[in-house]
Amino acid sequence: MIELHCPHCGPRNVSEFRHVGERHFRPDPGTTDPDEWRAYLYLRDNPAGWTDETWLHRAGCRRYLVVERHTVTNAVRAVRDAGDASSADVTHARAGDVQPGTTDSSA
């Protein structure tokens, strides 16, 4: 993958972005149980195919984006601002949650 099309900045080099990870949502800490919480912490779908994920345009508009990407071909079919989606997405973006298991090789 070479380029990502940012809805705010246009087509930009992918090295400007940080891959945050597969989109997943935090369960309510007040009502969750340990199994659900640990699944939230550690388990991902890791599909070989289309997936929805969160990216941060760190060297551009610094907005969180929702990217639909194919993990085998790295084709991208949709990018939108995380704030344009449901309110749950906004909470997710503010939490800035980082996928465990990634090396910080983009830093």
Binding site: M1, S15, H19, E22, E53, V72, N74, T103, S105, S106
Partner: peptide, 11 residues
């Protein structure tokens, strides 16, 4: 060799 790529992929 290096560290892993900055995003998940099967490519």
């Amino acid at each position: 060799g290096a560290s892993v790529d900055p995003f998940t992929s099967y490519s």
